[in-house]
């Protein structure tokens, strides 16, 4: 309308690129694809059904919750889909579909919409869904399937390590020939997705680096095999996809270091001294809780302000 009529200067911030919630979310979906495809290849069609069930349920419950709250329905922005895929990635491959439905509804409604929708939730919704399922159905949620063979149970590499002291070869962990939840089978697939997000600048390298680094340092100090602990379980998925959620992690740079280091220490404590073989879920969820206070105390000095 005012084209050619001189300069128009709006107030800051001046948005210079075309990033939007929708664009970022669909890029995250793209980054998750390698892990999901590999999961379907490894565990068969049921894994695909789990992914589809979670996605459909997430979109439906997001739309329902937003209708009930009387706000604009925004299921096209992809955030519900990302939550659904992240939740699906954390589920065991032979989980009954109705359990996935329950988990997704809890993730979207109790994990996200109750707090006021996208941007207002304190905890990563997908992790809330998984925590709910783990507390509700501990047997179903820890029944793992042997890769490439249907209906044969096998413990996860971390379970084998903790209970029987058996180490799984690095190559299996890397390429995805181990049992575990959908998204944790292959370190390679997770790395591809994670590096893509780093390259696009949608996640901050500080959180994965401090999280993984803390785990490696403490595992080495404690005399454990750091490479094994890096590759096994959902640590890489956690570091790249769950711990980097924009809403539930600190916004300050210093805060992100604190977040990653704290999560790393919690993970080592749970894996080595705790009762569970895996602790990525609780390490991130517990640190999510501290984000408001971390942000409060790590506000950087404003340029020009005199340091105290």
């Amino acid at each position: 309308m005012s084209k050619g009529r001189g300069l128009i200067v709006t107030t800051s911030p001046h948005v210079r690129d075309e990033d939007s919630v929708t664009k970022i979310m669909y890029n995250v979906v793209l980054a998750l694809l390698p892990a999901l495809i590999l999961a379907v290849r490894t565990f068969g069609l049921h894994a695909l059904w789990l992914i589809i069930t979670c996605s459909v349920t997430a979109l439906a419950s997001e739309a329902l919750a937003q209708k009930l709250r009387g706000v604009k329905v925004t299921i096209n922005d992809g955030s519900a889909l990302v939550t659904a895929l992240l939740l699906a990635m954390s589920l065991p491959p032979n989980l009954p579909l109705w359990v996935a439905v329950v988990g997704t509804v809890v993730a979207i409604i109790l994990g996200k919409q109750i707090f006021g929708g996208l941007g207002y939730n304190y905890f990563n919704p997908a992790l809330i869904g998984r925590a709910f399922l783990l507390a509700s159905f501990p047997v179903l949620m820890t029944t793992w399937e042997k890769p490439f063979v249907d209906a044969q149970a096998q413990a996860t590499p971390l379970g084998l390590m903790k209970m029987e002291g058996v180490a799984t070869p690095y190559s299996d962990l890397f390429m995805g020939s181990v049992s575990g939840s959908l998204g944790e089978v292959s370190a390679l697939a997770i790395l591809i997705g994670g590096l893509y997000l780093l390259y696009k600048g949608y996640i901050d390298w500080r959180i994965p680096l401090s999280y993984l680094g803390t785990v490696v340092i403490f595992m080495t100090i404690l005399g454990e095999d750091p490479i094994f602990h890096l590759l096994a379980g959902s640590l890489l998925a956690g570091a790249f996809f769950y711990a980097t959620d924009m809403v539930t992690t600190p916004i300050t740079k210093k805060g992100r270091w604190i977040f990653g280091i704290g999560a790393g220490i919690l993970l080592v404590l749970i894996r080595i001294f705790g009762g569970y073989p895996e602790g990525v879920l609780y390490s991130i969820i517990l640190m999510n809780m501290f984000v408001p206070i971390i942000d409060k105390y790590t506000v950087p000095t404003v340029f020009g302000e005199v340091a105290k």
């Binding site: 359990v99 109790l110 709910f132 507390a135 509700s136 159905f137 501990p138 179903l140």
Partner: peptide, 15 residues
């Protein structure tokens, strides 16, 4: 029926 164990845990009370 598969029991929802969380319902009888303290967290279930709050929920």
């Amino acid at each position: 029926f598969t029991p929802w164990i969380i319902a009888v845990l303290p967290a279930g009370a709050f929920l």
